[in-house]
Design a binder for these strands. Structure first.
Length: 478
RNA sequence: GGGGUAGUAGGGUAGCCUGGUCCAUCCUAGAGCGUUUGGGACGCUUUGACGGCGGUUCGAAUCCGCCCUACCCCA
C-alpha cells in the first residue's frame, strides 16, 4: 500500500530494519565512502553522548580518565607474542610521514595495551602506587575482513571505552574483574538491556589474557552480540613490559593486570532491543529528547497555545528534562509519526482544550495516554518516565527469557538455534567436544560459569561426550 | 576465506546487450509561493544524476581496463 511507502521494514526482517532505521531515525549515515566507517548524525550522536556519560559516571566512582596516543611504534606493538598473533592481521600501519618512509612503522591502535603498558612500567615503582585504575574513551582501528556493519562490525570503533588496571596480586586483579562485571551489569541495567555474562572458552579469550568474561545480549533475530568484555591479564603483559613494584619487604615483584572495554555495540544493542516496527524506542535515561511538546494550534488560539507551550518547555527544561518543542509548520499527525520514528519516549500534546482544563495530554511511545496537570507537570513527568523505563526493562527481559532454551541433545540444539534462540547445554569443557558442538551447529560456545538470573548454574552430562559438564551458553553470534 | 548481485538527483527505478535526445520517470526528497493544522494535507512553480580514475570514439550512463563502495548467500 502506497500510504506506507514511508514505513520501515518490519522488525522481524531485522537486518533491513536495522539498516533503514539507522538512516531514517538519524542515527548514522552509512554513505561515507570508506568501507567500515560511518558518520554519526547529531541526533544519534546525542544518544551516544548520554549513553557514554552514564558509563563515565560509573567509572569515575573509582577510576580516573586519561588519554594515550593513537599511534603505537612497531617494536612496542610486537613485544607480546600472543597479543600480536591475535591482532596482526587487523592492524592498520602508518608507513610514511609525507613522502618519507618511516624508519619505525606506527600502528593505529587496535586496542591500547601496548600503548599504555610501557608507560605503566615507568609509573609503577612501589606497592604504594597500586592499584592503578585508569580508563580512556578513544577510537580504535581494526582492518576487519568480515562483512562490516554499522555499530556492530567497524573498521574504526569510534568510542572504545577501555579501562586498564594494575594490582599487586593475582587475587586483587581477580577482585577487580568482579568489580568490572558488576559495573557493566549496572550500566546495562540502566539502559534496560538484559545481559548474559559468561566465561569465554579458552580458545576465545583475549590474546594475552588468563581468562575472559564476556557480556552478551540477545538481539531480535536471536543472534547474540558481544557488548562487553573483562579480561584478567595475569602477569603476561607485566612480564613483557616489565611492570614491577617494590613490596613492603623491598623485593621487586611483578604486577598483575586487568583490562575491560565496551564499544559502540552498546548502542547497537540499545537500538535493536527496544525498537519496534514504528522505529526507535529510547529509554528516557539516554533519549536525545525525553519528551516532545506538540502544540495544537488552531486559528485564534494560536498565540495562547504557543505561549503556554513555551512556558511548559521552560518549566520542564529548568527541572532538568530534555524537552523539544516542535514548532514546525506541520500538521500534528505528521509530527507524531516523526517523533515516534525517532524514539522519543513521551509526547506532550497541548491544545486549546487542554489549556482550558489546565492539563496536558501525555502519550507514551507505546500509545498509552495519561492526562497530566500543568500545575504539577514536573512530578507527572518523573512518574511517567519512570513507568516507561520499567515497561521497557520488563519487555526486554521477557524477550531474553523467551529466547533461551535448555537443551539436552545435539538434534534439539540445532533446532533451538535454527528457531533463533540461545541454548543452554551441558559441556565438559574439553576442546574436542567444543569444536564438535560448534562445527555441527554452525554456532559458538559463548561461555560457561554463566551469571544470569535466567540461567541457573547446573551440572549435567556433556551434550557431546556424556561426561560430567557445566551449564554452557551456545548461540549464533555476530 | 569462497561465491553472487549491484552503484543513475535527497530517496526509489528505467535506460546499458545494440554509443548520438531538446523533456526518462515515480516519491512522504530539496528550494519557493499560497491555502491548511486534535494521527502521515493540498495546489502551483522550480532544482537536481549517471560511484571514481583512465582508455576507445567526432561523441560514453551505455564499450574496455583498473579501483572504490554497498548488499546477499555459503565456509
Amino acid at each position: 500500500m502506497d500510504d506506507d511507502a514511508g514505513a520501515l521494514p518490519p522488525k522481524n526482517d531485522f537486518s533491513a530494519w536495522f539498516n533503514d532505521l539507522l538512516w531514517r531515525a538519524e542515527i548514522m549515515d552509512v554513505r561515507y565512502p570508506v568501507k567500515g566507517l560511518y558518520v554519526w548524525f547529531p541526533y544519534g550522536f546525542a544518544i551516544r553522548k548520554y549513553v557514554y556519560q552514564r558509563l563515565r559516571d560509573l567509572l569515575d566512582r573509582d577510576h580516573q580518565e586519561t588519554l594515550f596516543p593513537l599511534l603505537i611504534p612497531e617494536q612496542e606493538f610486537m613485544k607480546e607474542a600472543e597479543h600480536i598473533k591475535g591482532f596482526e592481521d587487523e592492524v592498520y600501519w602508518v608507513t610514511h610521514g609525507g613522502t618519507t618512509l618511516l624508519d619505525v612503522k606506527l600502528a593505529l591502535r587496535p586496542t591500547s595495551e601496548t600503548a599504555i603498558y610501557p608507560m605503566y612500567a615507568l609509573w609503577v615503582r612501589s606497592h604504594a602506587d597500586l592499584p592503578i585504575k585508569y580508563y580512556q574513551i578513544v577510537n580504535t582501528f581494526r582492518y576487519e575482513t568480515k562483512q562490516t556493519r554499522p555499530l556492530i562490525r567497524l573498521r574504526e570503533i569510534t568510542s572504545f571505552k577501555e579501562a586498564h588496571t594494575v594490582h599487586a596480586t593475582w587475587e586483587e586483579a581477580e577482585q577487580q574483574v568482579e568489580e568490572a562485571i558488576a559495573l557493566y551489569r549496572e550500566f546495562y541495567n540502566g539502559l534496560c538491556i538484559p545481559t548474559l555474562i559468561s566465561k569465554r572458552p579458552d580458545w576465545d579469550k583475549f590474546p594475552g589474557a588468563d581468562y575472559t568474561i564476556a557480556v552478551d545480549a540477545i538481539m531480535p533475530n536471536g543472534k547474540t552480540l558481544q557488548i562487553g568484555t573483562v579480561h584478567h591479564l595475569g602477569d603476561h603483559f607485566s612480564r613483557t613490559f616489565n611492570i614491577t613494584y617494590e613490596d613492603k619487604n623491598g623485593e621487586q615483584k611483578l604486577a598483575y593486570q586487568t583490562c575491560y572495554g565496551i564499544s559502540e555495540r552498546c548502542i547497537a544493542a540499545l537500538i535493536s532491543i527496544h525498537g519496534d516496527d514504528k522505529g526507535l524506542i529510547l529509554p528516557p535515561a539516554v533519549a536525545t529528547f525525553q519528551a516532545v511538546i506538540v502544540p495544537i494550534t488552531i486559528g485564534k488560539r494560536h498565540e495562547d497555545v504557543m505561549t503556554a507551550a513555551q512556558k511548559l518547555r521552560t518549566d520542564l527544561t529548568t527541572a532538568g528534562f530534555r524537552v523539544k518543542l516542535d514548532t514546525r509548520d506541520l500538521r500534528p499527525g505528521a509530527k507524531y509519526y516523526w517523533w515516534e520514528l525517532r524514539g522519543v519516549p513521551l509526547r506532550l500534546e497541548l491544545g486549546p482544550r487542554d489549556l482550558d482544563a489546565g492539563k496536558v495530554m501525555a502519550v507514551k511511545r507505546n500509545g498509552e495516554k495519561t492526562s497530566l496537570e500543568l500545575a504539577t507537570v514536573t512530578e507527572g513527568m518523573t512518574r511517567v518516565l519512570g513507568e516507561i523505563t520499567d515497561t521497557l526493562r520488563a519487555r526486554a527481559e521477557e524477550h531474553t527469557k523467551s529466547h533461551l532454551c535448555n537443551v539436552e541433545s545435539m538434534d534439539a540444539l540445532n533446532a533451538t538455534l535454527n528457531e533463533g534462540r540461545v541454548a543452554v547445554v551441558h559441556w565438559c569443557q574439553q576442546r574436542e567436544c567444543g569444536d564438535g558442538i560448534e562445527e555441527k551447529t554452525n554456532a559458538s560456545i559463548l561461555g560457561t560459569d554463566v551469571r544470569s538470573v535466567y540461567v541457573p548454574v547446573t551440572e549435567g552430562k556433556c551434550i557431546a561426550c556424556g561426561k560430567p559438564g557445566k551449564a554452557t551458553l551456545v548461540g549464533r553470534a555476530y
